[in-house]
Each structure stands twice: as structure tokens, then as C-alpha cells.
Deep mutational scan, measured.
Amino acid sequence: MATGGRRGAAAAPLLVAVAALLLGAAGHLYPGEVCPGMDIRNNLTRLHELENCSVIEGHLQILLMFKTRPEDFRDLSFPKLIMITDYLLLFRVYGLESLKDLFPNLTVIRGSRLFFNYALVIFEMVHLKELGLYNLMNITRGSVRIEKNNELCYLATIDWSRILDSVEDNYIVLNKDDNEECGDICPGTAKGKTNCPATVINGQFVERCWTHSHCQKVCPTICKSHGCTAEGLCCHSECLGNCSQPDDPTKCVACRNFYLDGRCVETCPPPYYHFQDWRCVNFSFCQDLHHKCKNSRRQGCHQYVIHNNKCIPECPSGYTMNSSNLLCTPCLGPCPKVCHLLEGEKTIDSVTSAQELRGCTVINGSLIINIRGGNNLAAELEANLGLIEEISGYLKIRRSYALVSLSFFRKLRLIRGETLEIGNYSFYALDNQNLRQLWDWSKHNLTITQGKLFFHYNPKLCLSEIHKMEEVSGTKGRQERNDIALKTNGDQASCENELLKFSYIRTSFDKI
């Protein structure tokens, strides 16, 4: 039985969820670079991206490699990797027998973001014989899940209580170790020597080791999670996991709180800001991140802002960003909400898709409305799209047979046209069989910064309504002859009103 693990408890099935942008060198404390989270699957090609990484700022997932063999891993080693800020997950990587050479110096898994409450997941690794993470000293947050690894031993010899604050939620089941077939031998045991430290858990006094050649490092209890030197002297209180010299914040392997210019500090002093819960960055760093993602459509890219001495992905609820200094300031009234469309555009074809934009005031991208039916549609669209004030790209209304009016965009005031449909149009209306009105132009103002209007096959939309939009939106004169079809717009509506004058002759039985 794995020490510190839980057996036999019912657990939810383990679901495996399925960018080499360097964020800056980590400095003297770390020998390499800070790398983003990685999802490495199918083959070993991307694994080489770990070569210079000291910190993975995010998670590391290595999974679904069915053609790899043990010899493929023999020359692979990433000794610079010290810390993973989120979680480490391995799933069905064939041929991998140990992690001792792959990650010989991995010391800390912070667990800032977890995989279903777990910071370390080893699942269905069919050839893994031992973990071998002999320098792993601290899992700051989260638990361990090690399950269905039929060859995995050296679990009962690990004292997880020396690595985690609590072992109650560890789930370590259905491994070879369960069948008591392992016969784990710690260093020196074969020669009758006791080389590794022994600890007591559940009444068992057991030597602690990761492999037959690597003991588990056990520091004096007084050192807590700070770690200790090879001689057993406690590291500085700002260290986490390990250090090369005692009581020196510049000799830590990793930091308990924050890293700044080669030393570990309790908090980031001005003019620095907390970033990702582990390091200090200056304003320029946060500003660069903001600008890199301002026009990016890459998933996970955030326009970072500053709030409460932190550089964070977005302002919290009730705050909006001051564009001059990136500071989050309290909103006066309802907060603006910028919604970034991942692929640059979004099609609204149902109430469900409209709900995804609920509360958005600025759309960074283009909207395509293609709704053919739905219950209580006008009210639903207004509830979900009615706060949109600005669209950076274009607005396209296409084959939306259920629409009679666009009044559900009740606050839309600006279409920038930074991206144009077919390279020309910022407003595009095609084949809307029941569209009769755009907006009530006596109450609604709309500016279209650039781009043209396109109207074709809107049989109940009168040309007068379209011409009014040209005047109000500032697009009059931009359109070419064929942009607004004269014969297919309003051709099934009563669009022309003329005053009919009647004269009559009164007659009676005795007068003409």
C-alpha cells in the first residue's frame, strides 16, 4: 500500500482533458527560462521544448504516446526543470519506465491550478516501474492521483506527508504495488545497510526511497516546507523545498512566496507586481503582455491589467481597466465587458449561442446573426445582446428569417469595421425574408467608422429604411451602385405612401 494514499474509496472516473512563447529569463536562482504550460502528445517531438525550461508557468501534460519505446527515452533528460506552477499529468506514455532521468531536479509542483483537485496525476502508464522524482520536495496545493499503472512499484516507500501538507485526498490505487509483488529495495538494503531515512506512518517504520538508488530526502521537522541542505541544516524561511546553503534567500532552489532578481522575498516591493503567484514583474512586463494579447485571437491570451499590486489576466467583477495605466478602477454604474472572439468572429444561430455573449459591452471581433427560429426570440436576444455598444469588426445579418427588427441591439452605437466582410463591408444584410426595420432612427444613433453597407434580398425592408441608415451611420456616399439592390429590397412591402385627393359631386333626387 502506498504510504499516505487512500484505498478502496469510491472515486469519480478520471477524465483526461485534452506555445513556446518565453516569458522571460528567471535569473540567477533558476538555471534556465520560464516556459508556458505545455500539452505534449502523440510523439516526442515537442518534448524537446523543455530543454531550457527551469519553470513551467502553467501545467505540463505528457500523454497518448503509443509508439514510443524505452530506448526512445534513454537520452532524454531535462535537468534544468525545477518547478511547475500548476500540475504534472502523465497518461498512456508507452515505453517510459521512470522519471528519474527525465526530470531529475523537479523540486516543486505548486498546484496553482489543479487537474480535478490533483497536482500530480500518473494514470495508465503501462510501462512505468517507478516514479523516480527523487528531488520532489513540495506539492504546495492539491493532491496526488496514481492509478492503474500495472508495473509501478516504489510507492509504499514514499512518505507523501513530507511532500504535501495533507495526504487525506491522495488516491493511489490499482498499481502493481497493490499486489505486494514489488519487493522494493532501498539503497544499501541488499548489503544489509540502512542508507535512507525511515519514518513512521500508520504504525509502520519504513525506509523512504524513490528507487533502488535514490533515497527520499527527509528534512528535520523544524525546517517545515522550506527544505534543508545535504547536511540537514534548514533553508531560509522564504525558500521552498530545498537550498544549497542554509538561511540564505539567494540560495533557495525555489521560493515559498515570490522570486525577485535572484532572491526569494515575502512580497513584491514597489515598483514590482505579483505575477502568477510566484514571481515579481515590473510595469513594462505587464504592459507588454497586455499589448501582445490586445489584437491576438490565441486562446488563453489575456490583456493583463494591474489590481491590488498584482498583474492579473482581467479586472475583477465591479472594476474596469483604465487604459492609460492598466489599473483596475471601480465602475460607475454597470461595468464594461470586452469579449474577445477566439477566431475573430462568432455566429449567433440560437439563443444558446447568444447567451455566451451575455453582459458583453464591447465585441472584439465580428458578429454573424443567422437565426431561423426560436421561442420568445426578441426578448431572449435583447437579454443577451442588448448591452453590446461596440463591435470592432463587422455585423452580418444573414438568412435570419425569424427577425423582424434589429432593435434587440438596443445599445449598439459603434461598428468600427477594423475587419470587413469580403474585404469591403462593415454591415452586411443578406436574404432576411421578414426583416422590416433596422432601428427606430428617431431614437437610435449608430456610427460606422469604416467599410460599406450591403443589402440584398431583404424583400420587406424598404429602401427608405436603408437610406436612413446611410445618413445616420455616416456611410452615405461610400456605397457603390450594386451594394444596395434596388429590386430585391422592399419588393414585397408597401414602401411608397402617396396622399390621394378626392373630389365629389353631391346629387339628390331633384338636383344634379
Rank of each mutant, 00 (worst) to 15 (best):
residue 261 D to W: 13
residue 144 V to F: 01
residue 244 S to T: 07
residue 265 V to Q: 15
residue 264 C to Q: 01
residue 117 N to G: 04
residue 197 P to M: 12
residue 311 C to L: 10
residue 288 D to Q: 15
residue 94 Y to D: 05
residue 164 L to S: 12
residue 328 C to M: 01
residue 328 C to K: 00
residue 237 S to W: 09
residue 92 R to W: 03
residue 275 F to K: 02
residue 85 T to K: 09
residue 216 Q to G: 01
residue 174 L to V: 12
residue 43 N to V: 06
residue 316 P to F: 09
residue 305 V to I: 10
residue 313 P to Y: 08
residue 170 N to T: 12
residue 329 T to V: 10
residue 31 P to S: 09
residue 302 H to K: 15
residue 68 T to F: 06
residue 194 T to K: 09
residue 195 N to R: 06
residue 242 N to C: 13
residue 98 S to Q: 04
residue 259 Y to L: 15
residue 238 E to G: 14
residue 95 G to L: 07
residue 314 E to Q: 04
residue 289 L to I: 15
residue 296 S to P: 07
residue 157 T to S: 11
residue 252 C to S: 01
residue 320 T to A: 11
residue 132 G to T: 01
residue 104 P to L: 01
residue 336 P to F: 04
residue 75 D to S: 10
residue 120 L to Y: 02
residue 130 E to V: 07
residue 284 S to W: 12
residue 152 L to T: 01
residue 256 R to G: 05
residue 109 I to D: 00
residue 93 V to R: 00
residue 179 N to D: 05
residue 97 E to L: 09
residue 108 V to N: 15
residue 306 I to A: 08
residue 124 E to W: 02
residue 66 F to I: 06
residue 161 S to V: 14
residue 216 Q to S: 01
residue 155 L to G: 02
residue 228 C to Y: 04
residue 107 T to Q: 04
residue 304 Y to V: 13
residue 302 H to Y: 13
residue 310 K to G: 03
residue 32 G to A: 15
residue 109 I to H: 00
residue 182 C to F: 04
residue 264 C to K: 00
residue 322 N to Y: 12
residue 187 P to T: 12
residue 97 E to I: 14
residue 155 L to E: 04
residue 174 L to M: 08
residue 85 T to Q: 15
residue 186 C to I: 01
residue 258 F to A: 14
residue 122 I to D: 00
residue 226 H to S: 05
residue 38 M to I: 04
residue 188 G to Q: 08
residue 135 N to K: 11
residue 241 G to D: 01
residue 85 T to I: 05
residue 96 L to F: 02
residue 265 V to E: 06
residue 181 E to L: 05
residue 213 S to Y: 01
residue 36 P to E: 12
residue 237 S to P: 14
residue 119 A to V: 06
residue 118 Y to Q: 06
residue 28 H to E: 05
residue 174 L to I: 12
residue 256 R to T: 11
residue 125 M to V: 04
residue 280 C to Q: 01
residue 332 L to W: 10
residue 87 Y to I: 00
residue 107 T to L: 07
residue 210 W to S: 01
residue 197 P to A: 11
residue 318 G to A: 09
residue 309 N to F: 14
residue 264 C to S: 01
